[in-house]
Design a protein around this nucleic acid. Sequence first.
DNA 1: GTAAGGATTGGC
DNA 2: CCAATCCTTACT
Length: 168
Amino acid sequence: MSRLERTFYLQSVETVAKQLLGKQLVRVFDDETVERYVITETEAYCGVEDRACHASKGRTKRTEVMFHEGGKVYMYLIYGMYWMLNIVCEQEGNACAVLIRGVRGASGPGRVGRVMELDKSFYGEDLTTSQQIWIEDTGYVPQINASPRVGIDYAGEPWVSMPLRFYF
DNA sequence: GTAAGGATTGGC
DNA sequence: CCAATCCTTACT
């Protein structure tokens, strides 16, 4: 199977979030062990206007990579213990990203980061060139379901109600 | 410098 | 229901 290239990540964040379902994350660990994880759940975060998106806080050291062109990894620590894996999308400056909320065998974004042994060191990693993590097409196109995003009540309307969580 | 809170999880 | 645990942001 082939690694997804730049053009895939430059599509709209909502499109990427849906298209990532069924694709597989490939992770090469330090001991050269290779593991593949099929993506089963994602959420789209849409730039500086989306109050649920960290980029709405402005371009800071933490959110910097989200302002780059699509295809890079945005990692951040939540509740002092869970590393979240996000994929930056769209053109440079749009500040959009897709949160990987679940893979086959690991339901929940915190578990995804733990199972794949991801942390701050992956911040800014480029999925089109990295030797440690990338995404491949499987040819499988699942039936997609959508619902509001989880854990962003603070964002208020209309963001809290928008169906930007996708799963199958 | 200090304080508040979070795109969660697992245990009581 | 609630503690764990630490980084980022907001304010003094």
